[in-house]
């Protein structure tokens, strides 16, 4: 008994040291991640000349707010809402379709399973630019060119292979017993999927929502190829207004980027707890 207590004290000391180290590195990493972000925000409050003359890593002196007024006057909210619509629609579709596909790949044994899985991995390797011309042709042929609808197909599809791949891995970690017990209760596969598997994959789904949400929100190449009227364009194309052949208004661009990143941060803060909660516990016990 005594030995155990000594051990415990030693462990505790070790644990304190470990935490001290961990916190130290955590703070270092905090600085590394925060600094560039902070300077993006701060440079958006400067005039280009001040930024260049004083250096990029200098506090705004003086603070200059007109960039934001101008960004807003140049139709920022229009771009913003179109992006919200596109990302929301594409994300929901993508999550449904990819979890549909991941379910049989992770939890059913059938002939073509290995081949399809390998095919999905191969589809992740396709260089995005080779699809520009075929997709442009298709989009004009079906009359979707220059509408937000044009983006849905490519956005959903290009997120699919990776999402299916990840979700398959996540669904594999769900214990088999869950389904088996459900089967005994007489649930069919579709019920199973919606009542058991989908809720249990929440953490995987939220990771995917974050990953693909961010890349769709920032997507430029397809949007630039498939949209042409300013009143149909999405947020990443708004930058073009401040970029010319030989000119670039950097603080203005950073102001646009700061404004576009804000909603993402807010969403992350609101939903971050969805990621950590061990959802398995309740499910198994219940």
């Amino acid at each position: 008994m005594k030995e155990r207590e000594v051990d415990y004290a030693k462990e505790k000391r070790k644990s304190i040291i470990a935490w001290a180290f961990a916190i130290f590195f955590a703070v270092v990493w905090l600085v590394i991640t925060l600094t560039p972000f902070a300077f993006m925000v701060m440079n958006s409050f400067r005039k280009q000349f001040d930024m260049l003359a004083q250096g990029v890593f200098h506090l705004p002196d003086p603070w200059y707010f007109a960039n934001y007024t101008e960004v807003v006057e140049n139709g920022f909210f229009g771009y913003f809402f179109r992006s919200v619509i596109v990302v929301a629609v594409c994300l929901v579709l993508m999550l449904i379709i990819s979890s549909f596909a991941a379910y049989p790949l992770s939890r059913m044994q059938f002939k073509l399973r290995g081949l399809i899985y390998a095919g999905i991995v191969a589809m992740m390797s396709v260089p995005m630019h080779v699809t520009l011309i075929p997709i442009f042709k298709m989009t004009t042929d079906i009359g979707l060119y220059d509408s937000l609808g044009a983006l849905v197909g490519p956005y959903v599809t290009f997120a699919l292979p990776m999402s299916v791949f990840i979700l398959t891995a996540f669904m594999m970690t769900i214990p088999k017993e869950i389904e088996e017990s459900a089967e005994i209760d007489g649930c069919n596969r579709f019920n199973n999927f919606f009542t058991m598997i989908l809720p249990l994959s929440k953490s995987g789904l939220s990771t995917l929502a974050i990953y693909n949400g961010v890349s769709m929100w920032n997507e430029f190449a397809f949007a630039n190829t498939l949209l042409q009227t300013p009143s149909h364009k999405t947020l990443p194309l708004a930058l073009g207004q401040f970029k010319g052949e030989h000119s670039l208004d950097i603080p203005m661009i950073l102001a646009v980027l700061t404004l576009s990143v804000l909603p993402m941060i807010i969403l992350f803060i609101v939903f971050q707890d969805k990621l950590v909660k061990g959802m398995m516990a309740g499910a198994v016990k219940g």
Partner: peptide, 21 residues
């Protein structure tokens, strides 16, 4: 009148020309 972005303009033109647009 369509305003294309300068950075990607040459690419846009290739895409449009090769698609008959």
């Amino acid at each position: 009148q369509v305003h294309q972005q300068n950075d990607n303009y040459k690419q846009q033109l290739v895409v449009a020309m090769s698609s008959g647009q």
